[in-house]
């Protein structure tokens, strides 16, 4: 376990830089993480990040693309527009939750 300072807060991260404790996440951290990977957060990004965080808090599992579409209302195309190329991993990184474990 590594501790790092992100946006002025001390948080636990894994080798890749993903937060390992979702409760340490703050909006400032999200802004910093998004900037790290070249994403400027719009309202729609925040909506999706909040859905992912709420769903993770409720189920203990990071939702996959299909769940974000079916339950969150973010069409697959939109997910790819918001978080280009790798929507699942990028959104999980910014939302401070683990990478999705499932295959779909």
């Amino acid at each position: 376990m590594t501790t790092a300072t992100i946006a002025g807060a001390e948080v636990q991260i894994d080798d890749e830089g993903f937060l390992t404790d979702a409760t340490e996440w703050t909006e400032d951290i999200a802004r910093q993480l998004a900037a790290n990977i070249g994403i400027e957060l719009t309202d729609r990004h925040w909506d999706m990040i909040r859905f992912i965080r709420d769903d993770y808090a409720a189920n203990g599992v990071t939702p996959g693309t299909r769940r974000v579409q079916a339950s969150g209302g973010f069409a697959t195309k939109e997910q790819f527009e918001l978080f280009p190329k790798k929507p699942q991993k990028k959104s999980a990184y910014i939302a401070g939750v683990p990478k999705p474990a499932g295959c779909v």
């Binding site: 501790t3 992100i6 948080v11 991260i13 190329k85």
Partner: peptide, 18 residues
């Protein structure tokens, strides 16, 4: 597990933006 302090957090490459 001992915590080690790093100055900067690594940034996932996401397979390079190229």
């Amino acid at each position: 597990m001992t915590a080690t302090l790093t100055e900067t957090a690594p940034i996932p490459s996401f397979g390079n933006e190229e």
